[in-house]
Simulated assay, not measured.
Amino acid sequence: WEEAWLRQEIDGWACVGAVLPPLRGVSATGIRLPKIGEVVYQGLPLAGVMLSGKPPLVIPSPVTGVVVAVNEHLNERLDWLWSDPCGEGCVACVSVTRHEEIQQNCRPRRVLLVNAGPTAEEQAQKLTALGCQVQRVADRDALAAALADTQDRAVFLDAASFGDAGPALAAMINERAPSVRIVVVGAPAGAPEPAYRKHKIFYYAVEPFSDNEIAEILNAVFQTREVHPPKADRGGEPSEPISSIAITNRNGHKVQLLSAPGLLWRNEGLGCMITQRLLARMFPVVITPGEAYLTPGNILSTATTVDRLMVLLAKDSGLLPGSLVRNTKPDFGVEPGEAAGKVTTMAVQPDDLGGLACLDSRTLAALADHIVWDMASY
């Protein structure tokens, strides 16, 4: 969800939105905005842009918290999502409830703009409008000094302003900061692309600021490696279903995740992701194979044997696929008895097939992170 952005405000709120790539061959027809009071989760859907003839373009939330304000103007000015994504195109304001997630998972887009020509100011303004922190340098000495700090940075090198000297600057960047990704902003007046390709560059783009290609390039430059749902080699045999995963967390509490049939599998998808994350935290994990039938009596009976029972469901709540609704006071229509206050339901908006298997890998990864956080934190 590298396209998502946030701006922290002094009152603990965060303005949130996304820098979206330009639409090609399809038009945006509307937007599904969150509702005030709705809880959103980092990495899971915040909003969705409706597209003609295609599934919605999901805007993920960069934070976890409660929606306190929504930009209703986007219903009439959907174009702001592309023309001014970090300004008028802000989607919502969220009262953040897990500030540690911002420190752990969010990072600024830091750009070193190397441009000695008249377009430097315009390029810097456009990069800033797309949520970047921009430092400008205009000569070799200033570039050498700036390369002393390259953490989480990308370098945009303007070919036209340096002419034939541009490729030598790319070589110097690679020598002094080999991990930095270099984007060459090409132009007919600059050195030709093959001269830059002799050196390690991430992207060569001809006039990307003129057609909004720059938003797409930024998403690629700052994208981390995609997490694919793990799959084991089982020789063609189906994966084993999981009915529950149980741990004893650092607080000494016994926590169990009880799953509706067909949602968790031992060797792939969400079930495997949850298990791997729990093992990485050195929790003792007990996996129960098979499928559980989630009757109220079964759920409440299981809850009496643990300190906290989490129940994973696929439930149509009219939200975007992958959205999570967490309920700490579910009503099962019967007297809970000893299980009172012990059960939390985690209802996920299913995919088009009614399950979770077709959700994209980053949504599954975010779901796994939130489930593990709940299990570990109680």
Rank of each mutant, 00 (worst) to 15 (best):
A146H: 06
E216M: 11
F202G: 07
V114F: 12
N212F: 13
I59K: 00
D374H: 08
H99K: 14
L127V: 09
P321N: 01
M273P: 15
L257F: 13
G25S: 00
G166T: 05
A142I: 01
I242T: 09
G89F: 00
Q276H: 11
T64Q: 08
R98Y: 13
R98V: 14
L263P: 14
L263A: 09
L278R: 03
V91Q: 04
V114T: 07
V285M: 06
L57S: 08
V343C: 01
E338V: 12
Q125A: 14
P238V: 08
I59E: 11
D164N: 12
G17P: 07
L278S: 13
Q223M: 11
K342D: 06
G131M: 03
R326W: 15
R197D: 05
A116R: 15
D139T: 07
A124Q: 11
S210R: 13
R140L: 08
P350R: 02
P330W: 00
E122M: 10
A339I: 01
E38F: 00
S27A: 14
R110E: 12
I371P: 06
V343R: 02
E76F: 10
S361N: 14
M172E: 10
A365P: 15
K231Y: 04
V40A: 03
A4W: 04
N212R: 11
K315D: 10
V286S: 10
V184I: 14
Q135S: 08
G166M: 14
N327Y: 01
G236V: 05
G17T: 01
M273I: 09
A145T: 05
V180R: 10
H228N: 11
G117D: 09
A142E: 12
Q133F: 13
L127T: 10
E72L: 06
S83D: 15
G297C: 02
D141V: 09
R225F: 07
P241D: 03
K231H: 08
L57G: 03
K198Q: 15
P56S: 04
Y41E: 01
